[in-house]
Amino acid sequence: MEITATILLFIGVIFGFMAFTHLSMNMKVPKMTWMIHLIMVILGVVALIIYALATENVEKHYNILVIFAIALIPGLLILFGKRGTGTKKALAMVYGLIGLFGFFWLLTYVLP
């Protein structure tokens, strides 16, 4: 489940990066790109939660869920807030950096 979550989140990271590249060049983000990002990230986090509930391992990755929860704040503001491109860029950057940090944190456990 840990590995599944990592793979799902990795796909999410790639699409997130694509979306951000569009945004940073003041282009409209294609719907497919951000939708795939959203779905993958949600599935990834769900997989992490299932892992935390099911595992007998001492390490349950709660800290990663906390980091993602923090990333959720700017994430939701992008999704539902009605703001200009400039603000969206800034929010996306904050969201991306926190989210990426959380993903790396997970990766430090998964990689050999």
């Binding site: 709660y62 800290n63 906390v66 980091i67 929860a69 923090i70 704040i73």
Partner: peptide, 15 residues
């Protein structure tokens, strides 16, 4: 939001 962030950061540091 500030309040929530503070709590979350606190949990992170403790964990």
């Amino acid at each position: 939001i500030k309040y929530i962030c503070n709590i979350l950061l606190g949990i992170l540091v403790i964990s």
